[in-house]
């Protein structure tokens, strides 16, 4: 499928989803749907670095938080419309991602993963001690109930996240089918050999960390407006790190479809478990599924389906 056709399909699907929810007319569905879409963006962004280049990022929450807190900062100093805040959050988180990319100069494999975890804790401590941004007590954002053209505010946020999800998926698919994607794959398979054959590995890794970080930051930017209240403990929560790893791993890391499937399944499962039982049980499902899939089905759902089809044909 050509990129332009794919973009058209994405937009049509997104429009249909929005229209269907609007027609159904239940406000809660927008509320829950926002979270699912947010995880689609996070999982897809994680996979651009983790799945394509093989560098595991345990610090997804940090990028999400950078986006959320850049919104808080501008909300306090110079209020801007949310689409602008999303771009700004993306820029800041992208810069942090660029910095993280330079870590790959010295750190490979497990050391890089632990380094990203360290990055998240250092950022969390800075934010916790930054009183202007609310410190450990958190910060409130007062949002309007309605907005022109769309109506209820939650629908507006949903629409923005829907747009972001479409962008993230198109970016991921675009990378996969371009020279960039092949470059990333060489790094994943054998970085030393790639470097020796003249692949500019550092440049590629910097591109991957920056894009991945920027998308995560963009997913975090509208978050203060969604919840109305942000606290370091929530946005730096381990849940974001675990989810953004578990969704691609369970879906399948080799293509853009994997994180999409994983995010839709796991995020919906968690929303359902949160309402039915408790949110702890929801994340427990995710943790258990992650361990089970990594052990029993390393290629994820996509791999299982492919294996099944190959076996049948």
């Amino acid at each position: 499928m050509k990129s332009s056709t794919f973009a058209l399909v994405c937009v049509v699907v997104a429009a249909l989803v929005f229209a269907a929810l609007r027609w159904y007319g239940n406000e809660y569905l927008f509320f829950a749907g926002y979270v699912v879409l947010q995880f689609i963006v996070l999982a897809t962004a994680w996979n651009i670095l983790g799945g394509y280049t093989g560098y595991v990022n345990f610090g997804s929450a940090a990028f999400f938080a950078v986006g959320a807190y850049s919104s808080i900062f501008f909300h306090k100093t110079f209020p801007l419309p949310i689409p602008v805040l999303i771009v700004i959050g993306g820029v800041f988180a992208g810069l942090v991602g660029l910095g993280m990319g330079y870590l790959t100069l010295r750190l490979r494999g497990a050391f890089f993963a632990i380094g990203t975890l360290a990055l998240a804790v250092v950022l969390q401590t800075i934010i916790t001690n930054w009183t202007y941004l609310g410190g450990s007590r958190g910060a409130y954002v007062i949002r309007p109930d309605e907005i022109a053209l769309v109506g209820p505010y939650v629908q507006y946020l949903f629409l923005l996240m829907l747009g972001l999800a479409v962008i993230a998926i198109m970016v991921a698919r675009g990378i996969e089918h371009s020279q960039l994607g092949y470059g990333f794959a060489t790094i994943r398979d054998d970085e030393l050999a790639a470097e020796a054959s003249g692949v500019p590995t550092l440049k590629l890794k910097l591109i991957a960390t920056t894009i991945s970080g920027a998308l995560m930051g963009m997913a975090g930017a509208p978050f203060p407006y969604y919840l109305g209240y942000v606290q370091p403990g929530t946005v730096f929560g381990l849940e974001y790190a675990v989810n953004s790893i578990a969704m691609p791993m369970i879906g399948g890391t080799t293509s853009w479809v994997g994180p999409l499937i994983g995010a839709i399944l796991l995020a919906s499962l968690q929303q359902w478990a949160t309402v039915k039982f408790s949110s702890e049980l929801g994340v427990l499902f995710v943790g258990v599924l992650l361990v089970v899939f990594v052990v029993l089905a390393p290629k994820g759902i996509v791999g299982l389906v492919e294996g099944w089809r190959r076996g049948k044909v």
């Binding site: 595991v56 675990v242 791993m249 943790g287």
Partner: peptide, 17 residues
């Protein structure tokens, strides 16, 4: 080793929850 890493990360999280 990266899947092993995810495995232990999952274990950590499951124990905690």
């Amino acid at each position: 080793a990266l899947r092993g890493l995810a495995f232990f990360f999952g274990l950590l999280f499951v124990t905690e929850i």
